[in-house]
Write a protein that binds this DNA or RNA. Structure first.
Lengths: 364, 364
DNA sequence: CTGTTAGCGCATTCAT
DNA sequence: ATGAATGCGCTAACAG
């Protein structure tokens, strides 16, 4: 693969009639010891030759690449996009680059880490989300820590409470606040469709969101009806089936829930479909709050009342934690951070707080 | 930033009691000239020291980095994710890495190109989608071509018909086939909500999709009612307003469309809301087909009949075109490819072809 | 078959 | 203030 012979620092030096070290000085801002005249000559030569220093060569001698590796899994769905954009937003002005690695399983993650270490990346941000049994191990992360390679982990279930820089979302709180919101709207019979509680390894968000729901109910001495706790497997189909079961149950009994907390947006879509085809209107017959706030949540009818992930915050904070480590002379001196971020509520139609359909201003 | 002193090829050589070049030979598969015994010693030493060759150093001498830069804009929405995953799928087994750059505007794109060129990336894939007036220039792409740096462009509107490797989607065809599908279902009065036709620079997909709609109608000598051509600005709000106008119009006149082609999914959501609140049922009162197939399209009610972007194909083809260039000794010898891919239809409820609500198998 | 050597492009002493 | 020399870790050409 012939590539244009790139212009090097030597070419610049020659054209400017100075030595290469002078050119280097000028380019790296160590202007202090370089005379006006020569500096101008250098700058002119750089301009004339369209010279761009070879980052590879620079990296080799400086022993840093100013790039960070970002590891993601497709399981993260579209959640990672805003995070990556935030990371880029912070890192780019500082001259850092981003290498993205999509790592569907732990093996490929380990692989990717090795590759990026060989590429001499300065640090990592992990947004790789593992759920399957065999892929739960995280010792390679511990290994990274031993090697004193800076990294931050976002929303990742870990085997134990490793002492790592990590950012989590407050799953308990979102369940609690969502339910609380329904209670404040006057509901006393509140069901839930949750994620898989029997998952191995334990699916933290599923458990915590449900626990939040439960505690909100108990706090108000509201009845907890076992049949109103459904497992929707975190999936669209699961949510549909769970809602069907709920409907079947309340056809037999007289009493029925007037509100429901659905632990993610996929299940919410499934539940909505089940309700719709059974003639159960949302929010009129049953109010609904869910977690996860894709763009379409606001565009459906009813528009979904949701809790959105604090993605931007996560991105910013992760990046800054990483930068702290990158800039400190030794990794160990910077203290380990374990940050928990709150979800943000978006009140829309499905919870019944906004009774009238939202019209656009131009039609109001 | 003190980093663990990495183990070098020299350490391996010393431990294995051979010269560094022997180690290099072994590691690069040029085993042919190395004796069994020494090779084993080398391998053992590599293992013992957990040696990983420094990719940076290797890149410097080989003058290739085995990484490609991928440029995206957030405007691409979530479309780019499957594409990137496909690219990774192809490239990773070949030892290539991916550097991702999110470039919101042309300036940052040019900037990113410079940076990645300095990083010595071997090639580029552009999925950066420009629409605003000032950001339409593409001479920096021509510049890349002059420099003989391999790159491929996916779904990008260009000023002129530059002779570049590019992959496009068949916008005309999707409009034509969508309308044809409605015609085949017996509809003769078909409206459309399109994207902005007055956009500067011209928004190709908006124009082409509408042209496809028009040609399908004309082909069957169906009436083209001016009031049934609405501009939905490609947005949710725009789709909502466009549908409202349509509704207003047919309240005055007797005749009304029985089907509608909506040029993207955002407008489709807006239109659905408008229809819903006016008591117009989809597909019973009006059949709807749209372009763009996010996961929720299949989960709504009615589930949307859509045309999905051939994202995986685009990713694979782009990557292979790039690889061809990367592997050929000179870029010029490989012929320029201009590929147009078809959208794929997904027949669901909104077009009325599936009259009954889709139930899940377990309930059938 | 194996070891020695010369760079890759740059930053950085260390002399001058 | 400036330039010559050294080396980052590795590959490849060449000499043995």
């Amino acid at each position: 693969m012939m590539r244009r012979k790139s212009v090097t620092i030597r070419d610049v030096a020659q054209l400017a009639q100075v030595s290469i070290s002078t050119v280097s000085q000028v380019l790296n801002g160590n202007n202090q010891y370089v005379g006006e005249a020569k500096r101008d000559r250098v700058l002119a030569a750089v301009q004339a030759l369209q010279y761009r220093p070879n980052a590879i060569a620079r990296s080799m001698v400086k022993r840093r690449t100013a790039t960070v590796g970002i590891m993601i899994t497709s399981v993260m769905g579209n959640l990672f996009i805003p995070i990556v954009e935030c990371i880029q937003e912070v890192l780019h002005p500082l001259g850092y680059n981003i290498i993205l690695a999509s790592t569907p399983d732990v093996e490929s993650e380990i692989q990717a880490i090795e590759t990026l270490k060989a590429q001499q990346v300065d640090g990592f941000i992990f947004m790789s989300f593992r759920s399957s049994r065999s892929q739960y191990r995280s010792d390679h992360l511990l290994h990274l820590k031993e090697e004193e390679i800076p990294f931050v982990v976002i929303n990742r279930p870990l085997e134990k409470d490793y002492d790592l820089n990590q950012i989590q979302f407050n799953e308990w709180e979102t369940g609690y606040l969502a339910t609380k919101h329904l209670i404040n709207l006057g509901h006393t019979s509140i069901a839930t469709i949750g994620g898989p509680l029997d998952h191995v390894p334990p699916w933290r968000s599923a458990m915590e969101r449900q626990r939040g729901w439960l505690e909100a109910l108990k706090e108000q001495d509201l009845e907890v009806v076992p049949e109103w706790i459904c497992d929707g497997r975190y999936s669209y189909e699961g949510g549909y089936k769970a809602a069907q079961q709920l409907l079947k149950h309340w056809e037999k009994e007289q009493r029925r829930p007037t509100a429901i907390f659905v632990a993610n947006e996929h299940m919410a879509l499934g539940a909505l479909r089940a309700f719709y085809y059974h003639g159960v209107r949302v929010p009129h017959d049953i109010a609904l709050v869910t977690v996860g706030d894709p763009a379409y949540a606001a565009h459906m009818f009813p528009a979904l009342t949701t809790f959105s992930h604090p993605l931007k915050e996560a991105g910013h904070i992760a990046t800054h934690i990483l930068l702290d480590q990158l800039h400190s002379s030794d990794t160990l001196s910077t203290s380990i951070q374990n940050i928990v971020l709150s979800y943000q509520m978006h009140i829309r139609e499905s919870c019944g707080a906004i009774p009238e359909p939202i019209e656009f201003r131009s039609n109001a």
